[in-house]
Design a protein around this nucleic acid. Structure first.
Length: 1093
RNA sequence: GGGCGGGUAGCUCAGUUGGCCAGAGCGUUCGCUUUACACGCGAAGGGUCCGGGGUUCGAGUCCCCGCCUGCCCA
């Protein structure tokens, strides 16, 4: 390694190129970090109490695509914290990894296969298809890892994980097992968002709403008295036996019941009601018609039914307040203004198996659920709809076809009342763009509504961020380890988090995909007839049974699905491979009838083989991606058995780094991921009580990057900026600096996007800020190193003392000290923009603009000043390292070997690994170096220099021309504190202390330019052969106008009795002094005007 | 519908518990090959702090109403 010419190396400073060229350093430095394993965390140091732990889990990027600018921001912010804490001496683990992103990745691969090979998923068997996705994942995982390294991320690469690798998979199986065992996972029929193209349930966040031009269709349902044909429906008189056909209801009869408007119809005719619907085809699944109880027609209809045309199903009319009242029956302004009331008839067809609101109504009224659709989105009588009657013609049609046919059939029977255009939003699938069908199906759920999960998540919030306090003293007394230890930054996001858990619903975790963690449940179905113990089970209920599998630690249930059919369910605990034969995992052991071991499973594949031999098959579904992501802070550290996955020295990993320090993420992730990590982490570390550790103590929510118009960056808009393009055009450090500088506490940041004419790639002018800054640093370092190289200092251990230093040196040390203190606070408080801004000002404004310029005349003669110079640059380089790791490391390669005397009070610890800055100590500067006297004197000198420069500029004095400053005694005592400073920085040849005379004995006004400094008139001469009197007049006139305006403001304030009476005395005093100074200056300037004529 | 943001210079944004003549970077204008840096140096111009009320001696900042705009949840 060390043979590489560039490695570690020492190009003499004089030969450093004029501009910083990132590409010449970044690869080499990544190589040095890698070779030194500089980012590998050692938990044993924490165990031995040699260091405090600092840990961040990367939000694992999806393997779906390369990283975008949002990732660049997210990871930069994490890296800044990791690097700062590492330098501060904390044992720092930033754990990297990627997420398998189930549906997203599968969809991308399916699309790719279709494009490239013209094949679909089902053209392969499951294993073949998964292998294709795996290959895709390998490709993108490699890309992502390379990108993170290019950005400079200081991750512990030896501990990189993937949510589907063996270690994470074991955690998933174990978590599922435990939750299932504890009754927090169940299977149930639920209405899900069904994507009929991908044929899977999708989560709400995998859908988007889109407005479509649809219709409200008006369908008539004939009113009947129920017969007894339908066993689910009791005859209305309650007496009739046998089969009785439903009897039509006439308008006459309705009129008698007091139904408003019934008289307007032919009295003998059969009566109907009219429902309004946007989806007529779902009438096949109707199980009731609902009316608002406040509708005057509700009472007359009580006890009546309707008969569904074609289907012949007789369903009740029920009353439910959810139903929108039609305009004419609206009772309040609010009801009238409901846009739906104009379209409403007051009758709502209720289809619990195909509409979420109807599902709720169905739950409230105990309605049966009739599913009329097959998983591919076609009308079916094989999925729960048995009584179908003449509607058989619709079977096999798509929902769209069925809609047209239903309308025709109703028309043919005179039951179609019409349709009105209606714009409404319809859910679509993100991945397939298909219209989502609410669909009733068997799904697995996590009962997150349980107090041990959602309740525990809210209890984790720090007291100051909670809006609901502990409800009961009982809860308060059962304080868990992580209670009150989770804090959001900025705090407002705690509310999002809290409200999410307050309104949370059970979490559907099954996905009908092939890519993901397969649900670790095996089932076997069989038929049993005749007398046996199992047929005492109520139909539909599941019971734990004792048997081989339960004896071996698995969950074993038997469920009676109908009269003589049973389903056995087995969920085994995770079998975790162990590298050590002495540390075997808990095995699944089965016994045969004679009590001998018939089978021992020590790994997952043995177990699966055994189950399959016994006729069990694994559930085909996979788990929602977030299930494995929710375990990330546990699975990455080896939970449930860290020893099995880590070398002996690392078995403390889980203990040391969970809870971690902070999670950095975007706000949309709060509900998707943060919540679930907290619930799972607390549950699994809390021994089933849900009150264990939080996975992280702080959650930092950063902004989302938008383009210049405030739109999200996206592929389809073509407004995205690729971090790789920025790294190649500006360098990783420039990108990182800019991203940090943009990170304020707001929730969005805008990044104007521009096309680079030469490359044709998107970029943003914002990154020039970072590039310019890096270049500035590079040149400051080049200059400094040049000075130090040409003045080798004799090695001396005698520290330079501040009291022996010049004013500018003391000023510089003071500025460094307060800046480092500010930066320390920024790191603690996640104030990235302030951090970047503080280093920017320190380097550019203080160090470059003033300090370097100020020391030019003296530096070669002063070893003490060179010590300050070296320490100043090194302090800046060190505090900048977390933001800009490459350029600082590159500069430090040269700087670290430069010998100067120590500076008393400046502590720069050595590198701990590989001679690298990334593990060198964080600068500590003693507070005693803060020197208010030096700062204020220097500030006055800066003001004086600026005043001179201003006059020079206005008089168009050539920069090279040396001029004369006519000053007074006050200035004399100031300038003698920093000899040569004003001369050097203001281009002054000599300072003459004759300002007092000038005013009285002036006869050559035109040759001089006067200006005011601290209220007194000073002058410049020798500006040119003659001073331009009119330029001088313009300047003075403008200044007078400005001052007069200020005078009015401050005078007004001081003549306000309220101000004088109530404002703090200090402010009043300041105002007085200010006014006096303004008036002094005004007097001087007016006199000057007089002289100018 | 509920919740959370944002609106300050041409652009992107700071602006702390109300208190100096409201700031920075970019862009603009003028002057500079001043030997670390033109990715630079020096200087300048540029603001109805979204609108309207209110509290206060004093409001960009606090309160109320409105307008525009973005996000999250249902």
């Amino acid at each position: 390694m060390s043979q590489t010419p560039l490695n570690g190396s020492s190009t003499p400073a004089s030969e450093l190129p004029k501009a910083y060229r990132p590409a010449e350093h970044e690869t080499r430095i990544i190589g040095r970090w890698d070779a030194a394993k500089a980012f590998h965390a050692d938990p044993s140091r924490v165990v031995r109490r040699e260091a405090k732990p600092f840990c961040i889990f990367i939000p694992p990027p999806n393997v779906t695509a390369a990283l975008h600018l949002g990732h660049a921001l997210n990871n930069t912010l994490q890296d800044v914290l990791a690097r700062a804490h590492r330098m501060m001496g904390d044992e720092t683990l930033w754990l990297p990894g990627t997420d398998h992103a189930g549906i997203a990745t599968q969809a991308v691969v399916e699309k790719r296969l279709l494009q490239e090979e013209g094949k679909r998923r089902h053209d392969y068997d499951r294993d073949e298809f998964v292998a294709k996705v795996q290959a895709f994942k390998d490709e993108y995982e490699a890309t992502i890892t390379a990108q993170l390294k290019e950005m400079g991320c200081s991750c512990d690469w030896d501990r990189q994980r993937f949510t589907m690798d063996e270690q994470c998979a074991a955690a998933v199986r174990e978590a599922f097992f435990q939750l299932f065992k504890d009754g927090l996972i169940y299977r149930g029929k639920r209405l899900v968002n069904w994507d009929p193209v991908l044929q899977t349930a999708v989560a709400d966040d995998e859908c988007y709403d889109e407005e479509i031009e649809g219709h409200f269709y008006y369908l008539r349902y004939p009113l009947v008295h129920a017969g007894s044909r339908d066993p689910a429906v009791k005859p209305s008189d309650g007496s009739a036996k046998g089969s009785v056909d439903p009897m039509p209801v006439t308008w006459d009869e309705l009129a008698a019941r007091g139904y408003p408007g019934a008289q307007e119809h032919d009295s003998e005719q059969e009566a109907w009601i009219t429902v309004a619907t946007t989806r007529p085809e779902t009438y096949l699944g109707d199980t009731a018609v609902a009316i608002n109880p406040h509708d005057p027609r509700a009472k007359p209809l009580r006890g009546l039914f309707v008969e569904l045309p074609l289907v012949g199903r007789v369903i009740p009319v029920i009353e439910d307040a959810y139903v929108v009242l039609p305009e004419r029956y609206a009772r309040t302004e609010e009801e009238r203004n409901d846009p739906k009331s104009a379209m409403a008839t007051g009758f709502l067809k209720v289809t619990p198996a195909h509409d979420p609101n109807d599902y709720e109504i169905g739950q409230r009224h105990g309605l049966p659920m009739v599913n009329m659709m097959s998983p591919d989105g076609k009308v079916s009588d094989g999925h729960g709809m048995d009584s179908i009657g003449d509607a058989k013609v619709l079977v096999g049609k798509t929902m769209a076809e069925a809609r047209k046919m239903v309308v025709k059939e109703f028309e043919a029977r005179g039951l179609f009342e019409g349709a009105k255009p209606h714009r409404h939003s319809v859910k679509h699938s993100d991945r397939s763009k298909a219209v989502i069908e609410p669909y009733l199906s068997d799904q697995w759920f996590v009962k997150v509504t349980d107090e041990r999960l959602a309740g525990s998540a809210n209890a984790a919030l720090v007291e100051s961020q909670r809006t609901t306090k502990q409800q009961s003293s009982k809860a308060a007394s059962a304080q868990g380890a992580g209670d009150g230890s989770l804090a959001f930054h900025p705090p407002r996001y705690a509310k999002t988090y809290e409200q999410w858990h307050t309104n949370i619903r059970d979490w559907c975790i099954s996905r009908q995909l092939w890519w993901g963690h397969r649900i670790p449940v095996w089932t076997r179905e069989y038929t049993l007839s005749g007398e046996n113990p199992a047929n005492k089970l109520p139909i539909g209920s599941a019971h734990a049974i004792d048997g081989d599998w339960s004896l071996s630690g698995a969950i074993h249930l038997v469920e009676r699905t109908c009269e003589d059919k049973y389903r056995e369910v087995v969920c085994p605990p995770a079998l975790i491979p162990s590298p050590s034969p002495h540390d075997l995992p808990f095995p699944v052991v089965k016994f045969n009838e004679s009590g001998k071991h018939a089978f021992i499973a020590r790994n997952q594949s043995d177990l699966v083989r055994e189950l399959e031999q016994e006729g069990f098959t694994q559930d085909p579904d996979v788990l929602d991606t977030w299930f494995s992501s929710a375990l990330w802070p546990l699975s990455t550290l080896g939970w449930p058995n860290p020893a099995a996955f880590n070398a002996e020295s690392n078995s403390n990993l889980l203990k040391v780094f969970n809870p971690s320090s902070v999670l950095c993420t975007a706000r949309e992730i709060i509900t998707l991921w943060v919540s679930r990590m907290v619930m799972f982490n607390r549950y699994f570390t809390g021994e089933g009580q849900g009150r264990g550790n939080v996975p992280f103590r702080d959650v930092f929510i950063h902004a989302m990057i938008q383009d210049g118009e405030g739109r999200k960056m996206s592929k389809s808009l073509g407004n995205g900026v690729d971090p790789r393009d920025i790294i190649s055009s500006h360098g990783a450090d420039a990108m990182r600096f800019t991203l940090c500088q943009m990170t304020t506490q707001t929730q969005d940041v805008r990044m104007p996007v521009a096309r680079d004419e030469t490359t044709g790639k998107n970029t943003s002018p914002k990154f020039d800020l970072g590039r310019n800054f890096c270049n500035k640093l590079w040149n400051a370092a080049r200059f400094t190193l040049g000075i130090l190289a040409r003045n080798p200092s004799p090695v001396s251990n005698a520290p330079v003392q501040a009291k022996d230093l010049s004013l500018v040196d003391r000023w510089m040390l003071s500025r460094l000290t307060s800046s480092v203190a500010k930066i320390d606070a920024c790191v603690t408080n996640y104030e990235y923009s302030d951090y970047a801004e503080t280093v920017y000002r320190l380097l550019w404004w203080d160090f470059c603009d003033w300090y370097l310029e100020a020391i030019k005349p003296t530096i070669d003669a002063s070893p003490a000043q060179r010590a300050v110079l070296a320490h100043a640059l090194e302090t800046i380089v060190r505090v900048l390292h977390p933001i800009a790791p490459f350029i600082t490391e590159a500069i430090w390669e040269q700087l670290k070997d430069v010998e100067t005397a120590p500076v008393h009070g400046v502590h720069l610890g050595p590198s701990r690994t590989g001679g690298l800055l990334c593990t060198a100590g964080w600068p500590r500067l003693d507070a005693a170096l803060i020197d208010p006297d030096a700062e204020s004197a220097f500030e006055r000198l800066r003001t004086l220099i600026s005043a001179v420069r201003e006059v020079r500029s206005q008089h168009q004095v050539p920069p090279k021309r040396r001029i004369t400053l006519h000053a007074n005694d006050a200035v004399r005592s100031l300038t003698t504190r920093a000899p040569g400073l004003v001369e050097s920085l203001a281009g002054v040849e000599s300072i003459v202390f004759d300002a007092a005379q000038t005013a009285s004995s002036r006869n050559s006004g035109a040759a001089r330019a006067a200006f005011v400094f601290e209220g007194a008139e000073l002058a410049l001469s020798n500006l040119a052969d003659a001073v331009d009197a009119s330029a001088e007049r313009d300047r003075v006139t403008k200044r007078i106008a400005d001052l007069e305006k200020s005078e009015r403001t401050i005078d007004g304030r001081l003549s306000n009795p309220g101000y004088m009476a109530k404002a703090p005395a200090k402010l009043v005093e300041e105002s007085r002094a200010q006014l006096a100074q303004i008036r002094d200056e005004l007097a001087t300037l007016r006199k000057r005007m007089g002289e100018l004529g």
